[in-house]
Design a protein around this nucleic acid. Structure first.
Lengths: 340, 340
DNA sequence: TGAATTTATTAAATCGATTTAAAAAGAAAG
DNA sequence: CTTTCTTTTTAAATCGATTTAATAAATTCA
């Protein structure tokens, strides 16, 4: 059933007025006589009129759309499970504010520049929520520099940039501190690649907690390759084979922690008795391990809603209460740390 | 750094031609003299021109955008972990074809109609990929009837609708058959709510496999409440408490299967020795259970790419080789079914 | 050289809604 | 019955790119 498109012109003709009057009437302008306004509104509802947003956008120079940009190839961009929660949070706010959500990714490294330029320059979006990439990704600067309002979802060195950042330092600190409070003193850290800010922050949080408890930092207790369960298992086996004495592991993410925990158990060690384990990122998977995994939960949906709200404030020209927002993670205590 | 916007007019002025010529030159029209074309292109690259897609869209009556619509509230829409893979698949195809991806959800049941009407009627998108909701959702018909090309990601009774559908019947059949091949004869099914087509299909696949192996279907062997691990555990406990004799369970999803498996183990039953278990949807979680979970993997990324490709074909007015596409799931054999 | 033909360029319309500035209609005042 | 001041309405411009139809320029042919 192809519906021929109803335009403002049709409404105007039906109501017996000009398109100018029709437009003013529908926007509730008080210059329009009450009787005329009603006639126009009736015509609009009769013809089931929905304004064409493309036309409106062109005139208003606004797209009524926000772009969520992942500065990497799709396969990578979407690989993290909590991306979904982020989308949830953003989406909820945008829908309430009658904004559309454009999800933008680049198919390959080579196309990246072109893809982002396109979004940024062609005014398809009024503002951007930017997912962080590796430290000092060369495209990030370009987007931040575009003149479009941007909310960056991570730490940024320049205070002018609006950010919503999860406190990864604090999360790692909490997890490490919790292990310390259980009496553990030889805590190893399985790290994620250090060209990601979150990896750097987690390592720093770990170090800081050790320091506050008077434990000297030992670089050989930090190990790790990528983000996978296998990497966690490898790390645990290496630590064990290397003859290191350790009574706890803080994993840079839950996969690493789970991989490590299982490897330790295969080596005949008991978790948490011999080695306490804590992870971070709160995967559902951590609830079914034996013991269940103590971890750090980052409220990604909240990051999404805060970022969307902040961006909409910026678009409305409203002043921001704070340019940088830090959301607090929560320590989720389960069996793997020996606390229960 | 606010970049004043470079328009075609600027290019034309710089190159000393009219906007008409500039436009024709950039589109590679052969009416334009080679020398002029080069001049225009030079001006464009010098001024770093990026065409405004809103203007282009208005004229062309095309949005160069595809909407992915989830016919439910965001919280629900995004709740499934494989949504991410779907997005991956769609995104990859769209980027290659220079399409944008609009992700649309409604914040509440009440807003649903308005939200979809808006997308459908205001021409913000040229086509729609529609995620299935409950059976006979009242909004689905409206969207299918909108006149916009739609690809529906599930089974639809009317052969005119283009679909990409995962073969849930076949998947359930495979899983059940596999249990039968292990010699199991009393197979229970923990089902998901029957107002979802996938639930119906899985139950049907289960039944069909039983039938083909000459096993009478016993309705009391089908049980289940929602999608959660807890529901799986409850079901297993009920089956056990009810005194049913069963040597296998086919779970309507992995959470149900895992919940059931763990409950059985707590009841002192051995998996797979006493009860073999198979699930379906291939969550990462299923790889770390003991034993690991045999399951069905649905290629969601492939569903995404196929749907996007199909929709783009439709938009280009190209004939479809097949209106309905069925993607085949894969049986992933792990320890829980007793096969290895 | 002038007419016919081909090639290249551009003016102007178009997409759909909004908004400004001007015109028309109505009301109040002299 | 004008004139002045309000209140309503509308013509026309605008946003930026595309495209058709018309013109201008270059080329070919007689």
């Amino acid at each position: 059933m192809t519906t021929t498109h109803v335009t403002l012109k049709d409404i105007a003709r039906k109501a017996g007025v000009s398109t100018a009057t029709a437009s003013l009437a529908l926007s509730g302008d008080r210059r329009v006589k009450e009787k005329t306004r009603r006639a126009v509104e009736e015509a609009a509802s009769l013809l089931n009129y929905v304004p064409n947003e493309i036309g409106r956008s062109l005139r208003a120079k606004k797209a009524e759309t926000i772009a969520l940009i992942f500065p990497n190839t799709p396969r990578f961009a979407f690989s993290h499970p909590y991306t979904v929660h982020l989308l949830q949070g953003i989406s909820e706010v945008l829908v309430h504010n009658h904004f559309h959500l454009l999800v933008s990714t680049a198919p390959s490294e080579a196309d990246e520049t072109a893809a982002y330029e396109k979004i940024v320059r062609n005014r398809r979006a009024d503002g951007i929520i930017l997912w962080p990439a590796t430290v000092r990704d060369r495209h990030i600067l370009r987007i931040l520099d575009s003149g479009l309002p941007v909310v960056y979802l991570g730490k940024w060195h320049d205070g002018e940039v609006a950010t919503v950042e999860r406190d990864e330092f604090g999360g790692a600190y909490k997890a490490t501190e919790h292990l310390l409070k259980q009496g553990r003193r030889r805590i190893a850290h399985i790290s994620t690649p250090q060209h990601y800010q979150v990896s750097i922050d987690r390592l720093a949080g770990y170090k800081s907690a050790l320091e506050d408890y008077g434990i000297p930092f030992d670089p050989s207790m930090v190990i790790g390759k990528d983000f996978s369960m296998e990497s966690g298992a490898d790390a645990a086996r290496q630590l064990h084979a290397g003859g290191f004495v350790f009574d706890a592991i803080f994993g840079g993410n839950d996969r690493l922690a789970i991989g490590a925990m299982r490897a330790l158990q295969q080596l005949g060690l008991s978790v948490p008795h011999d080695v306490a384990v804590a992870g971070c990122t709160n995967l559902e998977m951590g609830t079914i391990t034996t013991p269940a995994l103590t971890t750090i939960d980052q409220p990604m949906a909240q990051v999404g809603t805060l970022a969307a709200q902040k961006l909409i404030h910026m678009l409305n020209g409203e002043p921001l209460e704070q340019r940088q927002t830090l959301v607090s993670p929560q320590l989720i205590i389960r069996g793997s740390c020996g606390a229960q």
